[in-house]
């Protein structure tokens, strides 16, 4: 209760001080308030608060409109440039990816692996054709050094090549899900 009374009294005093400051008191009330200022420190401080509040509100309606938009515009400008830069970089990256000039490392590595696998496969079929055509002479001096690719002990295609060729197959022919001929082992 005491706290409430104190708050109410302070608000009353602040209101009286504001009315005095605003020139809303009649002559008698104004003189009484001025006389009170001679001895009452609370009334003096209330008058100082009333002036502060009134000037601050007036400034909030005028000066602040002049100051803050400039600050806001500056920050907006920086933010806008930042977003434009980010957007430009993103667009450039997408364009480069789309054009194929650059790409993720896994993509190029997969490409070279598939090329190796295709070369391996081509060599293997060439050897088979040569053998079938009877162009390969056995019993020569180099027989021991020649690998018989048609034999059962032919080296198995490495798993990474199979995987790479599967990828090529999936890329080149979406209709065919079977692996290329001759590479079904493993």
């Amino acid at each position: 209760m005491t706290m409430t009374m104190t708050t109410e009294n302070k608000n009353d005093l602040d209101w009286l001080a504001f009315c005095y400051t605003a020139g809303e008191l009649n002559a008698v009330d104004a003189e009484q308030f001025e006389a009170r200022l001679a001895d009452d420190q609370r009334a003096r401080e209330a008058l100082a608060r009333a002036v502060q509040l009134t000037q601050t509100v007036a400034a909030a309606e005028t000066q602040f409109d002049l100051v803050m938009p400039a600050r806001r515009t500056e920050s907006d400008w920086k933010r806008r440039v930042s977003w434009m830069a980010i957007g430009g970089l993103a667009s450039l990256l997408v364009a480069l990816l789309w054009s194929g000039l650059v790409g993720p490392t896994w993509h190029s590595r997969g490409g070279s692996r598939s090329q190796l696998a295709m070369a391996w496969n081509q060599t293997r079929s060439d050897f088979a054709q040569v053998r079938e055509a009877g162009l390969w002479s056995s019993g020569g001096e180099f027989d021991d050094d020649v690998i018989d690719l048609a034999a059962d002990d032919v080296p198995q295609t490495p798993s990474w090549m199979t995987a790479a060729v599967f990828n090529v197959s999936m890329d080149n022919s979406t209709n065919s899900s079977s692996p290329p001929q001759g590479l079904e082992q493993e």
């Binding site: 502060q52 400034a59 909030a60 000066q63």
Partner: peptide, 22 residues
């Protein structure tokens, strides 16, 4: 506020106060 400041080096109004009231 320019009149109120009276050319003093101590501003009567602080920007943060103005912003709070605004």
């Amino acid at each position: 506020t320019s009149d109120a400041a009276g050319g003093a080096d101590e501003p009567l109004l602080r920007l943060e106060s103005v912003q709070s009231v605004r």
